[in-house]
């Protein structure tokens, strides 16, 4: 169970229509990437409150993002040395670190963090089947894409990802039990693990296809149902207004 895993709840975010939620997430993600310091600070405070409301424990969530923070550090460093405005703080060979560079580095990393946290709120408050249904709804008007098949594929990916990770863990432990970790060549180690995992995954896929056929799988299935309410409209207007303010201010 991670902060990205769906958990049942009674918050407004849990009750919103998944299609509206996806639109809101897209609006927030685009506008945040243009936001300045003060609007971003205000939005981050609102986001923190939303995280608490959907039942995310913020320190635990940040702990789960430790590898993401490494990526943010790289983004920060890249942006810092690429911006030369402001006073020079220090210089390493040809790389010059300026106040403007640090400001831009912090801002860029912060924006990415906010997008990640918004995604966390979305996945925490939306059942995977709702995500699948919303994706099916959005794909319906797109020509040459069988939206029902795509939805089933999304659903299977969500379902089988933990199983594949579990199988990878088992294979890795089985290798270790036979002294596999004594092998120094990392390429060989990864190849051995990948081959075993692929064999297992293909076998599982084969069995799953049979099991789906046994349960009468058909692409002509019952469509998902949506029940949009005034709450969805209100949240969409609020998010739209926030997105414009983040963009403009």
């Amino acid at each position: 169970m991670t902060p990205f895993t769906y958990r049942k709840g009674e918050s407004h975010y849990h009750r919103l229509d998944p299609r509206y939620k996806l639109i809101m997430l897209a609006l927030v993600s685009v506008s945040v990437l243009q936001a300045a310091f003060i609007p971003l600070l205000v939005f981050s405070a609102a986001l923190a409150q939303a995280m608490v409301r959907v039942g995310i424990h913020i320190p635990t969530a940040l702990k789960h993002l430790k590898f993401f923070f490494l990526l943010l550090l790289l983004i920060f460093l890249a942006r810092t040395v690429s911006e030369q405005s402001g006073d020079t703080l220090f210089k390493i060979y040809k790389l010059q670190v300026t106040t403007g560079g640090i400001r831009l580095g912090v801002l860029t990393a912060w924006r990415f963090l906010v997008v990640m946290l918004a995604g966390m709120i979305f996945s925490r408050s939306t059942r995977p089947s709702q995500v699948k249904s919303a994706a099916q709804w959005f794909l319906k008007p797109v020509p040459f894409i069988p939206e029902k098949r795509a939805a089933v594929m999304i659903g299977l990916a969500i379902r089988f990802l933990p199983l594949i990770l579990q199988q990878a863990e088992e294979l890795s432990l089985a290798r270790k039990a036979r002294g596999g970790d004594l092998r120094k060549n990392p390429v060989k180690r990864i190849t051995e693990l990948a081959v075993g995992l692929m064999k297992k995954s293909f076998r599982t896929a084969d069995q799953t296809a049979l099991a789906m056929a046994a349960r009468g799988f058909s692409e002509d299935r019952t469509d998902p149902s949506f029940h949009p309410s005034r709450l969805d409209a209100a949240y969409l207007v609020l998010t739209g207004t926030t997105a414009i303010l983040l963009f403009v201010c």
Partner: peptide, 24 residues
């Protein structure tokens, strides 16, 4: 594990009736 295809207990049980195109 290979038979269960739904992302939740409810969704998996609903898989068969959805294939039969029963009303929601």
């Amino acid at each position: 594990d290979t038979q269960i295809v739904g992302e939740t207990v409810f969704d998996d049980t609903a898989f068969g009736p959805e294939n039969l195109k029963l009303p929601r």
